[in-house]
Each structure stands twice: as structure tokens, then as C-alpha cells.
Design a protein around this nucleic acid. Sequence first.
DNA 1: CTTTTCTATCGTAATATTGCAATATTGAAT
DNA 2: ATTCAATATTGCAATATTACGATAGAAAAG
Lengths: 109, 109
Amino acid sequence: MGATKTEHFTDKQNAIATLSKALGHPARIAIMEYLIKVEACICGDIVNELPLAQPTISQHLKELKNAGLIKGTIEGNSICYCVDERAIQKMQDYFSKISLKLNQKNNCC
Amino acid sequence: MGATKTEHFTDKQNAIATLSKALGHPARIAIMEYLIKVEACICGDIVNELPLAQPTISQHLKELKNAGLIKGTIEGNSICYCVDERAIQKMQDYFSKISLKLNQKNNCC
DNA sequence: CTTTTCTATCGTAATATTGCAATATTGAAT
DNA sequence: ATTCAATATTGCAATATTACGATAGAAAAG
């Protein structure tokens, strides 16, 4: 055991969980915020910006990319990573929807 | 190694990461959605609702509570768990803010 | 008081994540 | 072609997560 039983949940639930999981690390939050701040981006900048070794950051970038939170284009021997607005939009929509539902019903606790 | 280096990141970054991480599992997303759907809630219902054993669900509930996503009150030999709107609000605010920033600048990729 | 019923905790096995040193790869510059 | 500069991959150790059987605890029902 130890592996998540994704097959028992809906696609939507897994999709939100995947995005959330990818954002569930402060380094990856910091990377996202940096990408947003500088707009365009080369990975080397991030290495200088964060207190983590280059391989570690590379790995975090890979995870963000796998989750669909960032998109990258090869550009010479560096890479231009950007936030994928669609993923952010999904998250925003999700929490807006939940927020709305919570406001309609008043909670019991 | 293997432990997250939270001390190198800001409190805000860690806070969002903690909330995201807690939501980074489909079972916990399913639990949240169920709590929202039924409004008031007893844990036993969730056990019947989800394809996971009772100790597993109890553990997931504990994690959601630790992250501040749900709040629980003891009620006899059952427990009333509810979504904590404040946590959802934080997430909504965060993604709204990011979304806004992304719309202002046009991405490079 | 005993039983029933529900949730929490413990213990443990399987798996995943985190972080980095070492190394590989890749494109640009000389 | 060789070197340089940047990112990616590999391999590994430390730690965390996931899942659940067994068990404990606590209140309600009998």
C-alpha cells in the first residue's frame, strides 16, 4: 500500500487534487509567484532566486509542468517557463464555486 | 534529506502550500465536496460514501483539520465536521489575485 | 453493567516525495 | 572541433504519505 487510489474518484476530483498537490510545496509556490512577477523567465534566474540547488529546482519545475501549471518552450540552451493561465483559471473557478455554495448554506459548526 | 525546507520561504507561501497540500489528494477533495453537499455531517456517512477504510478516512479528516480546512465539534459518539469557509476564502483570494496579475501582463509562451 | 456503535490511534508495509552531488546533455561561443 | 554555460537526468539517502488491520476509547442503547 501507500499509493493513492485515484481510480476510485472522479476525473474532476483527481484533476483538482493533482493541481493542488503540485502547489502543495512552498518552493513551487515561490516558483509560480516568481514566474508571475517577472512575466518572462529563464530557469537560471530561479536558481539564483531560491535557496535550493539547481537539480532540486529543475525537479520542481518538472512537477509543475507535469501538473499543467506551467508551460515551457525550449529557447537555445535555456528554457522559457511561464504560468499556464488555464490551470490557474481552473483553481479560481473551483474555489469560487465552493465559496458560493458555502455562502448559500450556513454551516453547522 | 527528504524534509521540506519550509524555513526558507515566506509565511504566506507556506500557508498556501499547506492548504494546497491538504487538498492534494482526491479522497480529501471528495471529503470536502461531500461536506459541502450535505452541509452538516457525521463521519460515518463519509465512510459509507467513500471507497476507503474507516481508519484511512479518519486520518484524512485529521489532515484536513490540521490544515484548517475543516472544523469539527464533538457530538456524542459521532463528530460534526464542517468546511471552514475562511480557508476556502484564502484559496479563492489567492487564485483571484494571481488570475488578475496574469491578465494584466500577457504571457510570453 | 454489558453490548453496540461509532471514531481515534497504533503499528506497519508499501510507496512517494524531497533534496542534492555527480554526471549527462544541449546549444552557443570561440 | 572544443570549450563554456545552462538545464536535465541519474542515483541515492532521508523523510513523508497512504492505506489498513488491529485495537482502544467513549457515548448511547439495551
